[in-house]
Design a protein around this nucleic acid. Structure first.
Length: 614
DNA sequence: AGCACGCCGACT
DNA sequence: GTCGGCGTGCTC
């Protein structure tokens, strides 16, 4: 029986659904999950049909103008997934649907889809969630191939998620070893037209295996048997714009809705995932090998590096021996450029970015001053902009300065540098001096000795995940170094370093999870960051304070913290403050926060964002 | 998000 | 007297 009304959502941050009337000739053609063209607030937009009805409570309904496709581009399971995601991320249902679709379908263009002939076959085995813990990364592909084979045998499809586009090629190559040429690639960097072609192949059931980055989690695989997430602790899986979703969470929702298996393949799983091993929700398959390079600590409190060099004496001795044995060394220092601070010796003024207020980095190679946050670039001043004296000094060591220092200490060594802008690894360097960007090539690089010069900088960050991240990089580097990992630090007796030194994962996670519980951080409570930003510091702060008071007044579901200036309080000419909410009831808190914001927002031109578990 | 409607300053 | 500034409100 044809329905005369439709419930429709749009890709805007407005609650819906909105009711529309269906003209007679469209009633036969329209179905739930289809894209339609609708008039909305004076303009025409793409609407998504989320329901049909035989009556509506709203008077003077507008008419649906056109149906944009013959088959619904949104399967019922994806509709449910996006609905759940919207509640969980604090975005509208329409926004969630829009992010789930290829860019080509966000425009009101008419498309044709052939009907998929994929039959839904239930898997022979019961769906399960598995963590494959493989710190050496030697076993992951074998395990991956076995699971892909299984999925294929059960005539189901799979989604394979990798954190970065650079990992797609390797994934495809490994995939092809078990199944020649039947995977499709999803990544936001490909052209919209190409993305649409790939999407269509999956939607029409021509391909059942998808490999890609973040957005691939929404791929329209019809008979989904398995979702694989590589390195779920990687922060690239978190979208840093609205909707602020994390792939790990969306993958879990999807696995639950579609009753499919979920596999996390990780070197250092997140504390959130590890915590769920204890309650049996996730099953662990462990592959921790016995053989491992050694780890040596250099206690910086015994060697006064600030006065001499960022290369401590023990490290220097070790490097000498290593170089004599024709070994290859990687020195890690996570500061690009030559110097990190340029200060006037006369008035003490440091050169800062006019838009972000952070110290400008001096790039020796380009003879420029740059801001590491916003890439603001300026010429190197000859005199102090404040007092006009000519005594500007470059302080703080970046990798360019380290390079010249290493060249002075080891004049015979071949030295190369690697940072964000570098592409390939040099193949004949004795010493490679690098920032964290080197992680992406280290798997294919023979590094005998790796030394972290500024380990403490990783720990002293405000981010509550800094311990997790620091631990992850220590473990990664221990396996990347063939012989030895050297860590220069003041904190030689931290549990994190001890756990990494003894390759004791249980110790690290036990301590980390205990700490998270004490501080009531994820996974025990969720954080919702309500961020305010604007060009006038005073206005933003006043707004933040007022909003905080409003939130505080209705705070039965959550605890609200005072508005705090962000880590970078001024970024790209905007002042930023965050109010942090802690809660166990995410969806309910979002409903309340949204109600408060709706009533509050009618103030000034301040931008407010809401980010779950930042 | 955008787009319309609304109430206060410099123009023919 | 009007054009248009952005601040605020609403979208079936």
């Amino acid at each position: 029986m044809p329905f005369p009304f439709a419930h429709i959502v749009v890709g805007l941050p407005v609650e819906g659904p909105f009711d529309y009337a269906l003209p007679q000739h469209l009633q036969e053609k329209v179905a739930v999950g289809q894209r339609v063209r609708v008039p909305f607030h004076g303009a025409q937009r793409v609407g998504f049909v989320v329901g049909l009805a035989d009556k509506s409570a709203v008077q003077n309904l507008k008419l649906v103008l056109a149906v944009l496709e013959d088959q619904p581009s949104l399967a019922e399971a994806v509709l449910r997934l996006t609905k759940k995601m919207s509640e969980y991320c604090g975005c509208s249902w329409g926004e969630a649907i829009e992010t789930s679709l290829p860019r080509a379908l966000r425009k009101p263009k008419i498309v044709e889809l052939s009907l998929s002939n994929v039959k839904n076959t239930a898997a022979a085995s019961k769906p399960e969630t598995v963590l494959f813990h493989d710190p050496s990364r030697r076993e992951r592909w074998k395990y991956f191939q076995e699971r892909i084979q299984e999925t294929k045998v059960q005539e189901q499809g799979a989604i394979i998620l990798v954190p970065e586009a650079s990992m797609i090629d390797e994934g495809v190559a490994q995939f092809k070893k078990v199944m020649p040429a039947t995977a499709v690639i999803f990544d936001k960097k490909i052209k919209p037209q190409e993305e649409w072609q790939q999407w269509k192949m999956v939607k029409e059931g021509k391909v059942a295996f998808v490999i890609g980055t973040r957005s691939a989690v929404f791929a329209p695989v019809a008979n989904l048997g398995l979702i694989i997430v590589f390195e779920e602790d990687n922060s690239a899986y978190k979208q840093e714009q609205s909707p602020f979703y994390h792939v790990r969470d969306v993958a879990r929702m999807r696995a639950e809705i579609e009753k499919c298996s979920l596999l996390f393949i990780s070197t250092t799983p997140s504390a959130e995932i590890w915590h769920e091993l204890s309650n049996g929700i996730i099953k662990k398959v462990s592959c921790v090998p016995e053989d491992l390079s050694s780890m040596q600590l250099v206690d910086l409190s015994n060697y006064n590096p600030a006065k001499t060099s960022v290369i401590s004496f023990p490290l220097r001795n070790l490097m000498e021996k290593s170089l004599a044995g024709k070994e290859r060394i990687v020195l890690l220092l996570n500061r690009k450029g030559f110097s990190t601070v340029t200060r006037c010796n006369q008035c003490g003024q440091a050169l800062t970015c006019p838009r972000c207020n952070v110290n400008l980095t001096y790039l020796y190679s380009k003879k420029k001053m740059v801001c590491r946050m916003c890439h603001y670039t300026t010429a190197v001043p000859k005199i102090c902009p404040q007092c006009k004296s000519p005594y500007l000094r470059a302080l703080g060591t970046g990798i360019e300065k380290l390079e010249s220092e290493a060249a002075r200490i080891f004049p015979m060594a071949r030295i190369a540098r690697f940072d964000q802008e570098s592409s390939a690894a040099p193949n004949n360097a004795d010493i490679l001096i690098a920032t964290q960007a080197v992680f992406r090539i280290l798997d294919g690089y023979r590094a005998d000795v790796v030394a972290i010069l500024d380990f403490d900088a990783q720990l002293n960050r405000v981010d509550f995940r800094s311990a997790q991240k620091a631990f992850a990089s220590l473990i990664f580097l221990r396996y990347a170094a063939k012989k030895k990992l050297v860590v220069q630090t003041y904190q030689t007796n931290s549990y994190l370093i001890e756990a990494a030194k003894n390759s004791n994962f249980d110790l690290f996670y036990e301590q980390e999870i205990k700490l998270r519980e004490e501080l009531q951080l994820p996974p025990f409570k969720h954080l919702i960051a309500v961020g305010l930003r604007g060009r006038e510091e005073q206005t933003v702060l006043e707004q933040a304070q007022a909003l905080y008071e409003r939130l505080q007044a209705d705070g039965a579901l959550y605890e609200a913290s005072d508005p705090q200036p962000d880590h970078l309080a001024k970024l790209r000419d905007q002042y930023r403050f965050t109010i942090m909410l802690k809660t166990t009831a995410v969806a309910e808190t979002f409903v309340q926060v949204k109600a408060i914001l709706k009533d509050f927002k009618r103030k000034k031109s301040t931008i407010i964002t809401v980010n779950l578990d930042p």
